[in-house]
């Protein structure tokens, strides 16, 4: 179990509009959020909950309390594997996977939240937008600090020699993929 980082909630941590903002963004699906009665089926079903700082059920409770920063700084929203077990089994019909997606969007929009996982998502999509596919080397260099890149240089060389990685990215339908990415991002912006 990862340690629960927050042991006390103080008034300054509560954003009373958080739940309603989230509900609005989720549209019809958001209506079910207040129905959560903390039974725990979601967290019991979750294949990655063991690695999360808060279980999905705890995220629901934090949402209802309006503890926005804790939610958007949690590892939970980034670790969600989108397997849908929680959404399928929830007795109250809360679509937790969609909730996690929306929380991710909200964390991405606000520079205040700066978890490493967030950069991962951002850099990943940068590479895909540019090349139409992922290239490990470019992605790694973009994501990691210089020192780490230097430290792993030898290992990278070995991989290269065995033909596991390519230094210069190959492109695949990059124009079309770029268009798709733009379209999705625009759609996301529209929702805001």
């Amino acid at each position: 179990m990862n340690s629960v980082t927050t042991r006390k909630i103080t008034p300054d941590m509560i954003d009373p509009t958080f739940e309603s903002t989230l509900r609005k963004r989720l549209g019809e699906k958001g209506e079910k959020i207040p129905l959560c009665f903390q039974c725990g089926v979601c967290s019991g079903s979750c294949p990655v909950a063991f690695a999360m700082d808060y279980t999905p059920r705890q995220i629901m409770e934090l949402i209802k309390l309006g503890v926005k920063d804790v939610v958007l700084n949690s590892s939970t929203i980034w670790l969600c594997a989108a397997c849908y077990s929680c959404s399928v089994r929830c007795p109250q019909g809360v679509d937790l996977k969609q909730v996690m997606d929306t929380l991710k969007e909200m964390a991405l929009e606000d520079p205040k939240y700066s978890r490493a996982e967030k950069a991962f998502y951002e850099k990943f999509i940068d590479v895909v937008r540019k090349n139409g596919r992922i290239n490990e080397v470019t992605f790694y260099v973009k994501l990691m600090p210089k020192s780490a890149v230097m430290r792993n240089l030898g290992f990278g060389l070995k991989l290269y020699q065995k033909g596991k990685i390519k230094l210069s990215p190959t492109k695949a339908c990059s124009d079309q993929v770029a268009k798709i990415v733009e379209k999705i991002l625009a759609k996301g912006a529209q929702k805001r």
Binding site: M1, V4, G40, S43, G44, A49, T55
Partner: peptide, 28 residues
């Protein structure tokens, strides 16, 4: 244990049960 059971799976002659102990926030 306060937590609604997520799944029960036959497991080598016994039954494996997964749930969250919601009072601890840990999977069991």
């Amino acid at each position: 244990v306060r937590g609604r059971v997520a799944e029960v799976k036959p497991n080598n002659g016994s039954l494996l049960l997964r749930a969250e102990d919601t009072l601890l926030g840990v999977q069991i």
